[in-house]
Simulated assay, not measured.
Amino acid sequence: MPAMHLILSRVARRLYNRISSLSWDTVLTMTFIHFATSWGLIAFVGGEKIASGEIFWYFYATTATTVGYGDYSPTTAAGRVVATIWVMPGGIALFTTIIAKIVQQFSEKWRKRLRGLANYENLSGHVVILGWHDVRTQRMVDHILGGQGDDKREIVLCCAETMENPMPDQVRFVRAAALNTPDLLKRAAVANAVFVIAFGRDDNETLAAALGAAAVNGGAHIVAYFDQQSFADLLKAHCSRAEANVSLSIEMMVRSAQDPGSSRVQRQLLSTLEGPTQFSLQVPHDAVPVTYGALFTELKSKHEATLFGVANSTLGDDLILNASLDASVGPGMTLYFMAPQRIDPARIDWPALA
């Protein structure tokens, strides 16, 4: 039995390889020729009702697909011989070949996506992550999905390592030799992304990836993580709209040592997966100026949110934390608050606050 199983496996593998090598033109041509010759032979033997043009195609289809309803079949001895030695074997073989080709195409498409070779350049409004760091990237994806609310966006993960999609149920996957190659940036549709996160294997790769993304997308918000401040400064010098994050692990450890329990505050403020977390919103450009105190009360009483910071710009050095109650908050300013969920600026009654 094991020997027979081995022989059958080899035969099946060879047949699959042969079928895979056939082009669709060849398969369809063979099917048309077989259909035509089958019809011609049935008509040639004579005396067969199935030779009618209205019936033969139906008879051929039910025979080739092995359905065989039995409502139409050869009635003469010669017709049965033709059906037995030509129509049935050839039709079934060709139908099996077509099914195998269809399965092969779907399988190749799925494998191509799994290997990171697919093209997603038609995507838009999505999120791109440049770089793979095992558990850290998985947590990043979880936090992105957790913080989206009702605004669900596709995530495209890009890497420069030989691997398959590590999170096929959550992200689309693009792989190339480097994170800043034109091919990778094109297939990941970086030009159409809403924001891009660059987190390479080292600061050099992160910088190259961030600058590559900035070169093809002039409107996306680009965020990069560095170990050294000098690389963050270099990115800001070449791309002022990029947001560079530098490791704050030392500062966090000192704060936790001086104020025990601070780590849980830091974790919850940044986590989209547990409890209230930090969000931001931009004051509508048609809103009238209001006071920080009135806005603080509005957010707390009607939205269960705590306002703790305001800024005139998104990335400048003008952030004010714990502003005075009579400080003015005007159109276009950015608010930072802690809340169970993101707040749509349209849900705030700006005229009433004024």
Rank of each mutant, 00 (worst) to 15 (best):
L6Y: 15
L6K: 15
R10I: 15
R10F: 14
R10S: 15
R13Q: 13
R14M: 12
R14I: 14
L15F: 05
N17G: 14
W24T: 00
V27Y: 08
H34S: 08
A36S: 13
W39D: 02
G40E: 04
I50G: 02
A51C: 05
A51M: 05
S52K: 01
G53I: 11
I55E: 02
W57F: 12
F59T: 00
T66G: 05
D71F: 03
Y72G: 00
Y72A: 07
P74Y: 02
P74E: 02
R80V: 01
T84K: 02
W86T: 00
G90K: 01
G91K: 10
Q105S: 13
K109G: 10
L114V: 04
E121Y: 04
H133S: 11
D134H: 15
V135H: 15
V135F: 15
M140A: 14
M140I: 10
I144Q: 08
L145R: 14
G146A: 10
Q148T: 09
I155F: 04
M163N: 10
P166R: 01
F173V: 14
A176C: 09
A178R: 15
N180H: 08
N180Q: 11
N180T: 06
T181C: 02
P182Y: 04
K186S: 12
R187D: 02
V194I: 06
V196Q: 04
I197W: 03
T206D: 04
T206P: 01
A209G: 02
G212N: 07
N217Y: 08
G218R: 09
Y225C: 07
F226K: 06
D227Y: 06
D227I: 01
F231Y: 13
L235P: 00
E243M: 09
V246C: 04
S247E: 08
S249T: 09
V254G: 06
G261C: 08
R264L: 08
Q268N: 08
S271M: 08
L273C: 08
G275E: 10
T277V: 07
Q278N: 11
Q278V: 09
F279S: 01
D286T: 14
A287N: 04
T291D: 05
F296R: 12
K300W: 01
K302L: 10
E304Q: 15
L307T: 04
A311N: 06
T314G: 14
I320F: 06
L321G: 00
L325S: 09
L325E: 08
D326Q: 09
G330N: 03
P331A: 13
T334P: 00
L335D: 05
F337V: 09
P340R: 02
A352N: 00
L353K: 05
L353H: 03
